[in-house]
Write a protein that binds this DNA or RNA. Structure first.
Length: 199
DNA sequence: AGCCAGGCTACCG
DNA sequence: CGGTAGCATGGC
């Protein structure tokens, strides 16, 4: 299986996806400067948590609610009372769990200096699993780590352990975070469309 | 009217 | 270890 060839063909089919989408600017194809600020970085991180097993459309509603109450930063999240936080993120589902996950992450985030946390540091946070950790590393920190999700397994008929699949992609592709970002986004786009067609 | 979304944790055998 | 119930809302 030539993964680089799959990447090229998906790119031709769907065009650049421009992940990660932000509230103000939406998608930003051909712009790899994002995140430019610490604020954008944090929004990417909590978006990655909120989108766990959840359609992005619903995550956008939750993010917009948080923005409305000026809680798109770590300090503000920690200062919100429980009911307000849960109510804001309710559209993204699992609001009891995700409220706790956001607080756990915000606590961690506030403790950071300028350094980039390691994968295992992210994984040690309650509520951050492998895909979420890798999404944060790839899209918020621009680290060349491939993100594996349900669509990746489905599209390529892979039934191996998460990290095995991740390493398979990383070995087959140039070590370039921009390619990893686009490829994962393209896989999701392809997965969404092929599902819409077959139903 | 179901089925399922850009998963994770806890618990089971 | 691998497998899976539970978590929750909204879109199609």
């Amino acid at each position: 299986m030539d993964l680089l060839e799959s990447y090229r063909s998906l790119l031709k089919k769907h065009g650049k996806q421009g992940w990660w989408p932000l509230l103000e600017t939406g998608y930003h194809p051909n712009n790899y400067a994002i995140p430019r600020t610490d604020a954008e970085r944090f929004v990417i991180c909590i978006g990655a948590i909120l989108t766990q097993n959840t359609a992005w459309k619903n995550v956008e509603k939750a993010l917009a609610n948080l923005q409305k109450i000026k809680a798109l930063n770590a300090k503000a999240v920690l200062l919100l009372d429980d009911a307000t936080l849960k109510n804001a993120i309710k559209p993204a589902g699992y609001f009891n769990q995700k409220a706790k996950k956001l607080r756990e992450f915000a606590k961690f985030y506030l403790g950071l200096e300028d350094k980039i946390p390691s994968r295992s540091e992210f994984l040690s946070i309650w509520g951050i699993g492998r895909e979420t950790a890798d999404s944060i590393l790839l899209y918020a920190y621009k680290q060349p780590i491939f993100v594996v999700d349900a669509y990746t397994r489905r599209l390529f008929s892979l039934d191996a352990d998460y990290d095995e699949i991740r390493l398979l992609f990383e070995a087959a592709l140039p070590r370039d975070y921009r390619i990893y970002q686009e490829f994962h986004a393209l896989i999701v786009e392809e997965g969404k469309r092929s599902r819409a067609k077959t139903k």
